[in-house]
Amino acid sequence: MTPLRLVIDASVASGADDRSPRQTTRVACADFLFAVRDLGHLAVFNDRLREEWEGHGRTHGAASDFALSWLTSMQSKGRVRRSSLERPDLRWRIPNAAGHHEDVKTMEDDFHLIEAALDTDRRVASRDDKARTAFKQASAKGLVELAPVLWVNPASPSEAAIGWLEQGAPDEPARRLS
């Protein structure tokens, strides 16, 4: 299986936290992280995402002890990649492409995930369905560069994220931000 460079949001890391209130989320997120590691995929971080993982973040809080152990293991195995791509040209167009006013902040807060994904294999794992919906709408309203990005929610059973990973994380239209 060809290793893919995946952008994994801190919401997945915090979802694996043993203090997480929803046990199904905890297990699903932990299983997803295990699958990424065991299937030989790579994790991509830009500075913002790394800060969120390591505990300086905001929306979803710091990564769990489990997730940090996972990250340490991935780093030790040389399976972490860095992205420094910034797309101010796209970020600047967010307000015009937003479906609702409140979506602007939502997208701006998570745009670093899009930047890292566009710089690598265009695959994002995040529990933030609100951001996904906002990005999809923006993509339809002219921010077409976002359309090829695939977005999965590991905590959503219907999305079968681990099965998708096991198949090599194929480019499926239903997972695109289009």
């Binding site: 043993d18 297990v27 295990f34 489990f66 152990s69 996972w70 293991s73 030790s76 195995k77 040389g78």
Partner: peptide, 24 residues
């Protein structure tokens, strides 16, 4: 970067597996 790549060190594997087992 202090990475050992594919060297089969398994301390982290044991720790992760135990944490996963505990979570479940």
């Amino acid at each position: 970067a202090g990475e050992y790549g594919d060297w089969p060190e398994d301390f982290a594997d044991v720790e992760l597996a135990l944490k996963r087992q505990y979570l479940r």
